[in-house]
């Protein structure tokens, strides 16, 4: 192994370590303030190391997007009032979900393009990605990578649209709860349809229209699932979507072969799930009650 790839891997390892240590410090009031700095150093390290990866194209575009995204978020994050913090968390979390979905989309579109070059649908036996690359074609994802990529894209997209609805509600852009008869059935059907299309994609039948349909269904599900939930329950819902985004990041990290993403995403996925339970418990609610409570008349401690 030559020096540069080893150094990059070492940076990712350090980043993962710093994330875990930082989160650990954040879980105690005395050390909490240092914790975010540790995690921030880890993030800086991981992002800088990524610029030195081999075979990276579009470098100027990457730099431009990073600069625009960072400065816009930094500026808004500094300026908002302390009382507006929960919706900012929702907004930034939705962005993370959207980014994970975008990674999944790029990988799926690339897969469809590679299939178009091959004119065949590969059988479902585990493929050796290297063997495809011999003919100058882009390496195909293995079935496991494809499945996890699709799953991550689904979870990330739901987190994206759901978090944006949560943001809009807390921001006061959507005052009313949006309820119609049979909503739960519609939601379940939407999710089922998204899962079916996802399974078709994961089985290797990847085409442009299928990818588009998949993302539309996932977006709609996240939207409709969050619309009926009242504003007082939103922190619990945001925490749930936070865990979702973590899972999505972890799965897309597997697709990209990036260990830092796998570890950081899964740590957040597990921590976020537990945190969601704790927050619901602190409100004397169950998660199921928060998500589906608006359908019964006795929705409990709902403020709106």
């Amino acid at each position: 192994m030559s020096l540069l790839p080893t150094l990059i891997k070492a940076c990712y390892f350090l980043a993962a370590l710093l994330f875990i240590l930082g989160l650990k410090r954040m879980s105690s009031p005395r050390t909490a303030r240092g914790g975010i700095v540790w995690a921030g150093v880890g993030m800086l390290l991981a992002v800088l190391a990524t610029f030195f990866l081999p075979d990276m194209h579009n470098r100027s575009l990457i730099v431009a997007a990073v600069l625009i995204g960072v400065s816009a978020a930094w500026w808004t994050g500094r300026r908002v009032a302390m009382t507006a913090m929960p919706q900012m968390v929702a907004l930034y979390n939705g962005m993370g979900g959207g980014a994970a979905a975008a990674i999944g989309a790029v990988e799926l579109i690339g897969y469809a393009r590679a299939l178009g070059l091959l004119h065949v649908v590969p059988d479902t036996s585990p493929l050796q990605p290297e063997s495809w690359a011999i003919n100058g074609l882009p390496p195909l994802l293995s079935p496991v990578e494809l499945s996890l990529g699709v799953l991550g894209a689904l979870i990330g997209t739901v987190s994206f649209s759901g978090s944006l609805v949560a943001f809009a509600k807390l921001q006061g852009w959507m005052d009313k709860r949006f309820v119609f008869p049979g909503q739960r059935v519609v939601n379940i059907l939407l999710l089922a349809a998204a899962v079916v299309v996802g399974v078709v994609l994961a089985s290797g039948h990847v085409s442009g229209p299928m990818i588009a349909l998949f993302f539309v269904l996932a977006l709609l599900f996240g939207l409709l699932m969050t619309l009926p939930i009242g504003g007082a329950d939103m922190p619990v819902v945001i925490s749930l979507y936070n865990a979702f985004t973590g899972l999505a990041v972890s799965f897309e990290g597997f697709v990209l072969g990036n260990e830092a993403m796998i570890i950081a995403g899964m740590v957040v996925g597990a921590a976020g799930t537990l945190l969601t339970q704790l927050m619901a418990k602190a409100m004397n609610r169950s998660i199921g009650n928060v998500l589906f409570g608006s359908f019964g008349a006795a929705a409990g401690g709902d403020a709106q």
Binding site: D55, H57, S239, L278
Partner: peptide
């Protein structure tokens, strides 16, 4: 610490930025 931790873990899954950079770095069309 529930809310700050939610926010902190929200920051940590910002590592998705690295993945997005890799995806853009490999994008062709």
């Amino acid at each position: 610490l529930h809310t700050p931790l939610m926010s902190g873990s929200n920051f940590i899954h910002g590592i998705v930025l690295v993945g997005a950079m890799i995806a853009l770095g490999h994008a062709q069309t």
